[in-house]
Design a protein around this nucleic acid. Structure first.
Lengths: 119, 119
DNA sequence: CCTACATATCAACGAACGTTGAATCGTAGA
DNA sequence: TCTACGATTCAACGTTCGTTGATATGTAGG
């Protein structure tokens, strides 16, 4: 991931409404949510939401597809993981003070980290 | 980490100059860097840098200590790891599409993840 | 005490951001 | 084709952000 893209992603997530959009889409799963549903879920006017969705899409954090009259938005899981990986690559840099808690968070989650023996 | 704090941290990292400050401080290690050194390293005027440093400090990403005539700034490693952990907790949510690449990035780094057999 | 140096604070300006309302585009059904 | 509906685009606005220059604080040395 380029630095430019990462900066855009951080700036995008630094806005409350956009962050709530991303969280709602991640929670919704790969099926995604229609723009109208997102609007009422986040509490933003439709036209305003379009503005934020374009920003998030440009930052590589969400994707969209048309489905009948609706436009369905989904979280771009690869973009999100790229962002986390970029942050760790730029900040971890051989410093266990940063990585250790992240590794702990990984094993506290339902994901296959390679050493999660808790499941 | 609170959502409010995480939003402030994302917004802080979304600014190029501030991001470069954080990267410079992480690279510098726990010893940190003086404000003047940071100013020339990032290419920002001293008074302007103070503004950004206050923002980063308020976001919990850096800390400061006075040392003679200089003020030394250091990366807040716990704040950074908290931020990554928060992002994964809010975005991972049992979705291996996000966690797997992060786990891969972890093992590509010099940190003890518990299963890094590459070193 | 006075000077020199390193940072921080303040007021002010221009630029970018986020919101709003009206108008437009695209799709589905009568 | 006409209407209804969902979503987007556009122009305008008020606000916030980032930068600049001048000023103030705090520290070390003469």
């Amino acid at each position: 991931m380029e630095e430019r893209q990462a900066l855009a992603a951080f700036a995008a997530l630094g806005q409350e409404h956009r962050f709530r959009v991303v969280r709602a889409l991640v929670t919704a799963g790969p099926d995604g949510l229609a723009a109208g549903v997102l609007a009422s879920e986040v509490g933003v006017a439709g036209n305003n939401l379009s503005f934020h969705l374009k920003e998030l899409s440009h930052a590589g954090l969400i994707t969209s597809r048309r489905e009948g009259k609706s436009v369905i938005y989904s979280a771009a899981y690869d973009g999100l993981s790229d962002l986390i990986a970029f942050l760790m690559r730029d900040c971890c840099q051989g410093r266990p003070e940063v990585c250790a808690p992240v590794a702990a968070a990984l094993s506290a989650c339902d994901c296959p980290t390679g050493d999660t023996a808790h499941a």
